[in-house]
């Protein structure tokens, strides 16, 4: 299930945000070796204070964080415009109907103990669920396009799950990483294609409350 949380609600879910920032540190600094700033085991950058919308994939029963992505309006500060402008040297796209997604991550803890095939399957499934959530959240907000900066590894994942994107500009090697700008169509066609791949026919967005963080919390609630 995908939960949409505004950064203004950070105080309501401090543990969840903390878990997301720790997961981002583990993924982007630990596993991918990106040049991101990690403090106290948490990866937080200046765009986290630009009031983004976060989509979190949470396990319905245990409440465990399975993955997350961050959405920013392209009318305001965003990574493509302010960090990766070299990818679109003539100027980046900007409109209230275009959002930018960044920090797309799947929690390594959920596939660590599994064999390779099963781990790949899980990563793909959570990726598709997050993408379905992005299309649904965008459609609810009247958003028509999402742009994103990502690396060759992510481009491969998008292709393997048949998630169509169009390349804007030309890919550029930044450090060790080949970097792309992709444009995603937030249309019904996109949603049904993704739904068919991951078997997410009905809405993945949760309308209810966030599930409790752990089994013990669940017991405590019942008592």
């Amino acid at each position: 299930m995908i939960f949409t949380i505004e950064s203004a609600d950070q105080d309501k879910y401090p543990e969840l945000f903390d878990e997301m920032f720790r997961m981002r540190a583990e993924v982007f600094s630990g596993r991918l070796g990106w040049n991101v700033k990690v403090e106290n085991g948490r990866e937080i950058d200046r765009f986290d204070s630009e009031d983004p919308l976060y989509l979190l994939s949470l396990d319905e029963r245990s409440g465990q964080l399975r993955g997350a992505v961050r959405l920013l309006a392209t009318t305001g500060p965003n990574m493509l415009r302010d960090v990766f402008s070299v990818l679109m040297p003539g100027g980046t796209v900007e409109s209230p109907l275009i959002w930018e997604s960044s920090r797309f991550a799947v929690n390594p803890q959920i596939f660590e103990a599994r064999d390779r095939a099963e781990a790949n399957h899980l990563v793909n499934r959570i990726t598709v669920e997050l993408l379905c959530g992005m299309v649904e959240a965008a459609q609810r907000a009247g958003i028509e396009h999402i742009v994103s900066v990502f690396d060759a590894r992510m481009a491969r994942i998008f292709r393997s799950i048949d998630c169509r994107f169009e390349q804007l500009g030309t890919p550029v090697r930044i450090g060790k990483v080949m970097t792309y700008v992709g444009l995603f169509d937030m249309s019904d066609v996109m949603r049904s294609q993704l739904g068919a791949v991951g078997d997410f026919r009905s809405s993945v967005l949760a309308d209810g409350a966030i599930p409790p963080a752990s089994a013990t919390a669940l017991v405590a609630n019942v008592e």
Binding site: V93, E94, S95, L97, I98, E144, H145, E166, L168, L183
Partner: peptide, 17 residues
């Protein structure tokens, strides 16, 4: 040589700007 969707996005951005 672009997709229709990409053209729509560029036009949307141009209208906004």
């Amino acid at each position: 040589g672009l997709s229709q969707h990409t053209v729509r996005c560029y036009l949307e951005s141009a209208r906004h700007k």
